[in-house]
Design a protein around this nucleic acid. Structure first.
Length: 464
RNA sequence: GGCGGGGUGGCAGAGUGGUCAUGCAGCGGCCUGCAAAGCCGUCCACACCGGUUCGAUUCCGAUCCCCGCCUCCA
């Protein structure tokens, strides 16, 4: 039985889908004006893991992850770059797909773009006006009237009074209430715009998710996710919009993942302390990055540093080393766990961990216990199960040798051929009991970052 | 200021009212020509002060400190 920590309830709750066997999941994705940083990677990996677990649990998941392809920052960046908005967003959407794919993140079932749903946003805004929850202002903007939506602040645990006390921005005179947020922005000269009942303009940020989730998942669906920083105001405003427009419950379970940090501070664009996914992938294997993310619970903060990535690499190396020992090289299907035996003690522990609010650190600990036993017993079935359970997390699906020896085209050290030649030289020296020469060759390889391991079947190697 | 989340062994990171997290690192051993890998053993914890309890790292209260949201942000 799966339990999910529901931000709305501030506690773990048993997951009960609206329609038995099915899950509707919406996750707020990227605003595409720059490369993904590690924070974005975390959202993608975490919800990819959640989808994989839901599927392994027998649910048919309808996963929607949107793309914001129109907003102030995009407009500004396009002007700075001297390119069109379409060129800019197409470029970064493609980059995002490359990053996601590298990290083993499966594409969502739907990836709607805001610009494709402007009609829906206009009609939803109209509905909100008709219901007295929104109003057009003299400046051509349309605002949501926060005061008129009962329960505003429930998700973020804030009251209107608290919010007012903490106001840090100057009040826009066209708003009736300082906390009202924009549904529709009137176009400034030169900006991209759409026709609407309130003149030319473009949608505000929050309305897109309300409109697109309704189109693709319906007015009421199971799980809505995103980074913790979206809890307020973005998700709070989505609730106000969707529940205001529909007159009933919007989402049953809200999931928020914790931040990636650098030196104990949130990694963010505004602080400028971010690392892009592609920067990190130049230094570290993508599976190591995925492992690093999944090694912490999704709601905990995750501190980034090279040292922590190196630790993650060492840990993942242990798992792959265990797999290599047993020569379990056949590649299994990533998504399928058809012939995974869930009745073993290990699988039960794994399941219990994952059912407990996606406790991946605990699930990974089970993997290590399996590796230890596999190393002792040399049990091939156990090793296969280790690989399959790893596969549920999107890990351990590669040929162990490929992981341990690295991709020859991306490593700038010795080629496999050179290494083999030196190993043969050393083997000959060892046969002749010339250990001085043998150790010299081994040291030469070590200098090149190659570690040798002598085994019953001969000498194998891996990259440090 | 308001609201929320935390402080676990050298590092990372789970968890629990009373014998094990897990990984890396350290130490001792086995194995090895020597290593590496692996195995066995082992050291190092639960911010601080009170309270509840037969017993608290785990529950309650106070204190200190950190982080996040309240503004675009995953």
């Amino acid at each position: 039985m799966l339990e999910i920590y529901n931000t709305l309830a501030r506690e773990k709750q048993e997951f009960v889908p609206i329609v038995p066997g099915k899950v509707g999941l919406y996750v707020c994705g990227m605003t595409v004006y720059d490369y993904c940083h590690l924070g974005h990677a975390r959202v993608m990996v975490v919800f990819d893991m959640a989808v994989k677990w839901l599927e392994a649990s027998g649910y048919a998941v309808n996963y929607v992850r949107n793309i914001t392809d129109i907003d102030d920052k995009i407009i500004r960046r396009a002007i700075e770059n001297g390119e069109s908005i379409g060129e800019l967003t197409a470029r970064f959407i493609e980059a995002m797909h490359e990053d996601a794919s590298a990290l083993g993140v499966a594409p969502p079932d739907h990836e709607p773009r805001a610009t494709q749903y402007v009609e829906h946003m206009i009609s939803m805004t109209n509905t909100l006006i008709a219901k007295g929850l929104a109003y057009p202002a003299p400046n051509g903007d349309v605002y949501y009237s926060v005061h008129d939506f009962e329960g505003y602040g429930r998700l973020s645990g804030k009251s209107l009074e608290d919010l007012r006390a903490g106001e840090r921005v100057e009040v826009d005179p066209s708003k009736r209430d300082a906390l009202d947020f924009v549904l529709w922005k009137s176009a400034k000269p030169g900006e991209p715009s759409w026709d609407s009942p309130w003149g030319k303009g473009r949608p505000g940020w929050h309305i897109e998710c309300s409109a697109m989730s309704e189109e693709l998942l319906g007015e009421h669906f199971d799980i809505h996710g995103g980074g913790q920083d979206l809890q307020f105001p973005h998700h709070e405003n989505e609730i106000a919009q969707s529940e205001g427009a529909h007159g009933h419950k919007f989402v049953n379970y809200w999931m928020h993942n914790g931040f990636v940090r650098v030196d104990d501070e949130k990694m963010s664009k505004s602080l400028g302390n971010f690392f892009t996914v592609r920067e990190v992938l130049e230094k570290f294997d993508a599976e190591v990055v995925r492992f690093f993310i999944l090694r912490a619970h999704y709601r905990s903060p995750l501190n980034y540093s090279d040292q922590h990535l190196m630790d993650a690499k060492a840990a993942l190396t242990r798992l792959y080393t265990a797999l290599r020992r047993l020569e379990v090289l056949e590649v299994s299907d990533h998504s399928s766990c058809d012939n995974l035996d869930w009745d073993t003690q290990y699988a039960k522990r794994f399941r219990a961990a994952m059912d407990d609010d996606f406790n991946t650190p605990e699930a990974i600990a089970v993997l290590f216990d399996m590796a230890t036993e596999a190393n002792i017993s040399n049990s091939v079935p156990l090793s296969i199960q280790l690989r399959k359970l790893g596969g549920v997390l999107g890990l351990l699906q590669r040929d162990p040798r490929q992981f341990l020896q690295g991709d020859s085209k991306q490593s700038q050290g010795m080629s496999a051929g050179q290494i083999d030649t030196l190993i043969q030289q050393r083997t000959d020296a060892r046969k002749a009991k010339d250990f001085a020469e043998s150790d010299r060759v081994r040291n030469e390889l070590l200098q090149a970052g190659i570690i040798l391991e002598d085994g019953p079947q001969g000498t194998t190697w891996r990259r440090a």
